[in-house]
């Protein structure tokens, strides 16, 4: 009995498992950063959609509806790659000599000096930005709808007090909007949490990649087969982890909505 506990304690705290536990930071960072950026891009998109200048309005509408037709994974793979290539192209216009370009045999980068190596940190930031871009489009729809459901009387009252349009927007409109946007934003947040499982597609050694490595049949020449294919157990742990995170977020959003909606009539909060 004691031996069993000692064995499992030792097994679950060996170096590889500790690395696995540490890799949860990537997932959490991507979720938080992606969520923040999604709100920022959402606000920008909603403002563009409300703009009186037609090209801006068109751009906002295209941005917020493109996610309807194209899957998030595609953006998730495309954006970091496109950004990397864009930077490499910019570098190449500065550092590449014609001779170096002529000497380059591979299709990309234009010359060897223009190569930009991306590590985990860079990929993580790019992944968060692409999460923000994709889910910002959802958020911009939510925020656009919320901006329209702020009672017109409140804006009129603000204008009657002599506030400039900018003051009305920032002091009244956007602050009153959150109550209406929160239910939709909580849905967007759930989508972002679930999308963080895709980080391993960008060569980030995240929880999914480690679960795969740890669960794969483990064979040591000295000991023989340590354990057979345990992958499904590790994935089951992740499955439960994500359900727990969803549950926690639901509770948190309920608390925030209760707080944001205090003093308001209950039907305004749906």
């Amino acid at each position: 009995m004691i031996d069993d506990i000692a064995f499992w304690f030792g097994y679950l705290t060996n170096g590889k498992h500790l690395t696995w536990y540490a890799s949860f930071q990537f997932t959490i960072f991507a979720a938080l950063m992606g969520g923040t950026l999604a709100v920022v891009f959402g606000l920008a998109g909603a403002t563009m959609k409300n703009s009186r200048f037609f090209p801006l309005r068109l751009l906002g509408t295209i941005y917020s509806s493109i996610v309807r037709g194209v899957p998030d994974v595609l953006f998730f793979l495309f954006f970091p790659l496109a950004f990397e290539q864009g930077v490499e192209w910019l570098i190449s216009t500065q550092v590449c000599s014609p001779a170096a370009i002529a000497a380059q045999t591979a299709a990309w980068p234009p010359c060897k000096e223009a190569n930009w190596f991306l590590g985990t940190t860079e990929y993580l930031i790019l992944a968060s930005v692409s999460l923000g871009l994709v889910y910002g489009a959802f958020a911009s729809n939510v925020i656009h709808g919320a901006l329209r459901s702020v009672p017109a009387g409140q804006l009129e009252a603000a204008r009657a007090y002599g506030m400039s349009p900018r003051q009305v927007l920032w002091r009244i409109h956007i602050r009153q909007m959150w109550v209406y946007a929160l239910p939709g934003l909580s849905n967007v947040w759930m989508l972002i949490i679930k999308a963080t499982s895709l980080l391993s597609l960008l060569q980030i050694a995240d929880i999914v990649l480690w679960a795969d490595r740890l669960g794969a049949p483990n064979f040591l020449p000295a000991v023989g087969l340590v354990h057979e294919d345990w992958r499904w157990r590790y994935y089951l742990v992740l499955f439960v982890f994500y359900i727990l995170v969803t549950w926690l977020s639901e509770r948190a959003f309920e608390a925030i909505m209760r707080r944001a909606g205090r003093g308001m009539l209950s039907e305004a909060r749906t």
């Binding site: 679960a211 994935y235 969803t246």
Partner: peptide
């Protein structure tokens, strides 16, 4: 319904496939 809506499809794929493998 809660479990399958609350977890990523990507994990569900890995989980069921590795379960089938084992």
């Amino acid at each position: 319904i809660y479990a399958f809506r609350g977890s990523p499809l990507f994990i569900q794929f890995f989980m069921f496939y590795s379960l089938a493998l084992s």
